[in-house]
Design a protein around this nucleic acid. Sequence first.
DNA 1: GGTATAGTACCGTCCGGACGGTACAGGAGC
DNA 2: GCTCCTGTACCGTCCGGACGGTACTATACC
Lengths: 188, 188
Amino acid sequence: MEAEQPDRSARDRVLDAAIRIVGESGAGRLTLEAVAEAAGISKGGLLYHFRSKEALLLGLLERHLAGFRERYTAELERRGGGQNARVQAYIQSVLAGDTLGLDHDGSLSLLAAVANDPALLVEVRRQVQDFYQEIGLTHPEPLRATRLMLAAEGLMLMDIFGISVLEPAQRQKLHEELLAEAGVLGGE
Amino acid sequence: MEAEQPDRSARDRVLDAAIRIVGESGAGRLTLEAVAEAAGISKGGLLYHFRSKEALLLGLLERHLAGFRERYTAELERRGGGQNARVQAYIQSVLAGDTLGLDHDGSLSLLAAVANDPALLVEVRRQVQDFYQEIGLTHPEPLRATRLMLAAEGLMLMDIFGISVLEPAQRQKLHEELLAEAGVLGGE
DNA sequence: GGTATAGTACCGTCCGGACGGTACAGGAGC
DNA sequence: GCTCCTGTACCGTCCGGACGGTACTATACC
């Protein structure tokens, strides 16, 4: 979170600020002025980096998607490939990072986009669908695989809305169970 | 407190209009004027029924929560009670109604609320947590039960964002599998 | 029966402020 | 002196909400 590198570029700092606002005050309070202030620059400076609010929203979405793909690819490589590894990598990527943290980066990006203009989600839709197509539906046990992936998604949803349905230890156990079960699906 | 008989429909028509706007144009375009127009009344008339935007949002949330509790209670009664029946009733209530429809009534209410002011979700949080507490955590197999519930939640999430990860037939099958598996959990 | 009073349901207008976006004038560093 | 970046000033629009008014109904008192 801290700026150790002199260039956690201005763009990224702006996106971070935007995420912070959405999480704390709601997507409806995501105004250019508020983002600029939270990022420590002026409105003019913000508009230099993102020419419009829509561009800012798209930036948010793009960073989220890129980050997710990156996490997924890394996880998959770590697990050596295979149908079950894909399911595991997906689950791990959805639930990645914080067990209790507040960044939910990607989900808040989605929230911001859908609140301002649902049409922005076209690309997200396409990519998520691709993931499910590639991982779930080509799996020897498509429904079981999909179910595990969706459970991870549900857990993440609860995080977005700030609902802790499980205590941290239980949550961690559920997380591990999902991964474990994905590892022993039939077909491998 | 809650004694309204003469104009039950006007309030509901306003709420319906609000949901329509959120679904079609995004929560960010949910303005009092737009709602009034969509509901076929004037802005003044709208403000007679809901004294502020916050009141409108709360109305949306309240109707959703009441509807969910009602569905859940009915489903539970139909299944005769018991730990597994509770899990089934919950899953059924989450995925209730349309398989492909566009109303996602409740979820859009949540979306509208979280976009305008996350603080409104306090009550929702409390109720959802109660459900998980009552159904999942007191179940003999808490993690398995929770997992099935979360999978239903994930599937619903995909609906909100308009992502069809499964074809209707497959989706239906997954829905039934979740219910079936909830029925044969240990402890009964 | 007639009139006064109160309540319900709604309408149309107005305003202060916030919003997205534009224009432009710098300034640092190459 | 050009590019990259920043800050200030401003514009037109839209929003939430307040307000005053209207039409109709219901009860109340005489």
